[in-house]
Write a protein that binds this DNA or RNA. Sequence first.
DNA 1: CGGTAAATTGTAACCGGTTTCACCATGCAA
DNA 2: TTGCATGGTGAAACCGGTTACAATTTACCG
Lengths: 352, 352
Amino acid sequence: MQPITRSTTIRDVARLAGVSVATVSRVLNGNHGVRGPARQAVERAIKTLNFEPNQTARRLSLGKTFTLAAIAPFFYRASSVERLRGLESVFSTSAYDLVVYNVETIETRDRYFSELLRPDRVDGVVVISLSPDDAHAEAFERSGLPVVLVDAVHPRLPSVHEDSALGGYLATRHLIELGHRRIAFICDELNAPLSIIGSNANINRLAGYRRALSEAGLPLDPALFREGPHSKRLARGLARELLTSPNPPTAIFAVSDTHAMGVLDAARDLNLRVPGDLSVVGYDDVEVAEYIGLTTINQSLEKSGRRGAELLLGLLDTPVDAPTGESVQPGSESIEVTLVVRGTTGAPLQRG
Amino acid sequence: MQPITRSTTIRDVARLAGVSVATVSRVLNGNHGVRGPARQAVERAIKTLNFEPNQTARRLSLGKTFTLAAIAPFFYRASSVERLRGLESVFSTSAYDLVVYNVETIETRDRYFSELLRPDRVDGVVVISLSPDDAHAEAFERSGLPVVLVDAVHPRLPSVHEDSALGGYLATRHLIELGHRRIAFICDELNAPLSIIGSNANINRLAGYRRALSEAGLPLDPALFREGPHSKRLARGLARELLTSPNPPTAIFAVSDTHAMGVLDAARDLNLRVPGDLSVVGYDDVEVAEYIGLTTINQSLEKSGRRGAELLLGLLDTPVDAPTGESVQPGSESIEVTLVVRGTTGAPLQRG
DNA sequence: CGGTAAATTGTAACCGGTTTCACCATGCAA
DNA sequence: TTGCATGGTGAAACCGGTTACAATTTACCG
């Protein structure tokens, strides 16, 4: 049984135009070595037959897939979607298709890292918010595929990442400048299995927090440090612990807006006024942050996606097999972060 | 100049196993017609060479792309992302890759609709929150590609959509049952150019609103109807108009949570207590809704994506060229909607 | 106008799988 | 033992493009 409609091929065009397939192919690919009459005949035939070259066949013969992969915890981290948006805006103007691979667990991450990284699957990969370990990085390099990390770093791979230490520093300094002296820090669990997923942003933000404190000559009080899963509800519990302790903080810097919302919940539970009794700073500047008036750190997530995409396209133009044998610089870059002051921060009230 | 690493092909495997490529291919595809010894030799060779068949070549010879497309206004409508999540969860367990095409304008929509709908590009398409017109629908059918609409409908195409009329009805009836008599309705601009993008959910929700009113014997007051762009800020203005009118509503049903947040802003501006002075119902149950305690309609967005994906996979198994000539039923289905009562609705205060 | 270089064009061999069809080796009945 | 059905196997033809290489034409020179 034959297919009802056989799609028109380059040979049909060649026949109609009275030339060889090679000539048609040359016209299709903008090759200059085709003279007027032949070129016109081919163009007319293409138009007549409404011919469009078969992508799959092109891919096979060119040995390229014209496909790029984005691997990310898209739904586990709201920020991934914003970054994806940046990727998409760049790739949609290129010849590449964007295939998304969502990672929810370490198993899926590892599966994608090993299954996808074959030149016959994709031409390049953007990894978002997932930190590859050394074994992964080596596998990436062996595959010969261009890989760009976004919101993650590895010494041997190009990346785009926000300067998390700076973000942590800016948030903390803001609170210090307002007059706060006891500033708590709430972050994701630093050693949880899930922290393998996710970049080491937490650690860097913590580093920024510490630097700001030490610059101001403030002590680092372990009693003001809490870690817990990326969840509003659990952050609420942590905040409650902090706020009901003997010597509570007057400000809390949360490592994400999600955490920060939990902190605000806790403050409401305890009838604390924000920012009078408690100042709160979040991180990410997700959409809700503006609505609830949360002071936070903006990382221009979309921009990071865009830059990552641009970096990858750059790598695609300059293939790995550099004739000199000198490997190209990984070329990491960082995206600026800015403090967005809204209504949840203010000077601490003087206590009795 | 030759490529540094030629990937291993099926012929390498055949040579090592001492069989023909046909036999290797049969083993790869689980064909039963290969006897013990040959089969084992092939399996050993595959393992030894760490062979993985080239996807592109398979695609070409099978005439399938193993790729599905999702076309949606991903970033213009937050709900698309939730639905995408549903799609992804289904497709990730299938043999298909998911390529995303983001639509921001009518031009990109039309471009994707015409460029993508070729059998050599994808094997199937899910269209999210974009209503195709008759010309599009016809083009879809001509392409022979399975297409499933999610959050959109067309008489000649299979679809998964929420019962928007029911949602509108439930929201309104809830308010009526609480004792409200003057219930306003705020929705997207019904005739704006952008309404071509987007499904006709607004109209159906309005229909549900009307039905609930008429069932309760309440009049439909045009003074209580407002339309404006999908924007919190503009909804705030519309709500202010309503609330400062001579005979203001005691409740407002907004067609999206975004609109509802604008309404809440307006209430705060006017020092109206919610729900004492004003009850508010939204629509969508986006993530923030829970945080701000908004009563709203939940449409299980993710589920609609999942069902759409399942529908598409079903269509892929039963090719279009049905031998009987009897075309398969479009098979639309609707997803249940539920009312989620939170803190923004209550009985109206008795007025002096 | 002959001769050579340069530009066009066509033939056929790729890319790496799948699959038809012919062939050969069995197994079983006559 | 022959005859035939059965089923495993391989050679080669696909799928629909690109491109190396050879053949042909054209351009330009003395």
